[in-house]
Amino acid sequence: MRKLAAALVGVLVAALPATAALAAAAKPDIAVTSAADKASYAEGETFTITVTVKNKSSVDAKRVHYTGGDSEGVDDVAYGELSSGFDLAAGASKTVKLTGKTNRVAWQVGRGYVAFELRADNGEANAADNITSVRLLVPGAFDDLGGYVFQGESYDAEWTPQTAGVPGVKVVATTADGKTRYAEAVTDAKGLFRLAHLPAGDVLLTFTAPAGWKVMAGENGEYDHTLAQVTADDSDEPRVFVPAKKVPVSSPSASPSPSSPSPSSSPSSSPSSSSPPLSPSSSPTSAGPGLPVTGDKTMLLVGAAAVALAVGIGLVLVARRRRVRLQA
């Protein structure tokens, strides 16, 4: 009996992982993608979003339906079949549509969006890909954008009206991808800047600080740029606040001074700085005939010339004496 009981326990223990795996695999895996029917819309225009739903699991999905989401700048969103739900066989796909209208808010901020989640009644194996969102661009509105670059020691420093500003910071506004330039400005003595006539929506602000300052922009203060939202309304209040801290100013490296001649060198023994050095194959006499520069040979030639000159003078004197005698 003990052996039989032990064997049954062993079978149960061995079966537990397989049972757990079967239980995990018994849930469908719903993946959702969506796309708008146009690249941009006018205020009040109807939009249509095509939603593609796929069951990636080997288990049938029971009543796939809309369970919640969020939206902005849209009205009258109709989810259709996504609200009532539908069954989706293992490995199958289904395309459904939802509709709505853009509103005044979408025009003011340059875009609206719809985001939602789908689930099946019999569970979800992977919740990471059953959420989708669509952005609906609504261009046409423009407004100014202002802000402060202020003195702070960290990226999360807070601005107050008493906080000292950083003047002379150049601010450039472009599209979010940085490809199209909109406007630029320079901060004043209080660190205030204002960019005029920007399109509503997301813009990228890039900051160039003067020497001695480091801009701490972005989510963690690691960058010199940040995204900002332009909203068309009646407010002129600054909306962007970016800290900057003082940093050491790097001095230019000193250029090496020209080497001075050694104290033991004399001007006559140093070659002229304007004269190129002779190559090893060059000869001092290559420019034309002349005396050799070797010291011993020079002395021999000078001595020979002196002897020849003395002999010549002696011959002249002898000739003159003979001529006198003949005349006598």
Rank of each mutant, 00 (worst) to 15 (best):
L137G: 06
D70T: 13
R135F: 11
G69F: 04
S83K: 14
P139L: 07
G69N: 09
D87W: 03
T67W: 05
G80H: 04
V96W: 10
L88P: 03
V59L: 03
K56G: 10
D76H: 08
A90H: 03
I49E: 11
D144C: 02
F86T: 09
T132L: 01
V134Q: 07
A92C: 03
Y113R: 04
S71H: 10
T46K: 15
I131W: 11
G110A: 08
T46M: 12
G73T: 01
T48N: 12
T52P: 01
E45R: 01
V74T: 14
D87P: 07
S133M: 02
E45A: 10
F116T: 04
A115K: 07
R111W: 11
A61P: 09
G146P: 06
S57P: 06
Y66K: 13
A78P: 00
T48Q: 13
V109N: 14
R111Y: 15
F142S: 12
A61F: 08
R135E: 13
E45K: 02
L98M: 13
K56P: 02
S84W: 00
L137Q: 14
V74E: 02
G85C: 08
D75T: 11
A120L: 05
V53E: 10
D144N: 14
D129T: 08
D129M: 00
N130Y: 01
N103Y: 00
F116R: 03
E45T: 01
A128E: 09
V74K: 00
Q108W: 03
T99L: 02
S133H: 10
F47R: 00
A89H: 05
E45S: 05
K94A: 14
V53C: 09
D121K: 06
L82K: 05
S133T: 04
T46G: 13
L82G: 14
V96K: 08
D143L: 06
S83R: 13
S133C: 00
K56V: 07
I49A: 02
N130L: 02
D60N: 14
A115I: 05
Y66G: 12
F86Q: 08
V64P: 13
E72T: 12
N122Q: 07
S58T: 14
N122M: 02
V64S: 11
V105P: 00
G146R: 04
A92Q: 12
R63V: 15
G140Y: 03
L82V: 06
V114M: 02
E45P: 05
Y66C: 09
L98P: 04
P139C: 05
N126D: 15
Y66E: 15
D129Q: 05
Q108F: 01
L136K: 01
G91S: 14
W107E: 13
N103K: 02
G146M: 04
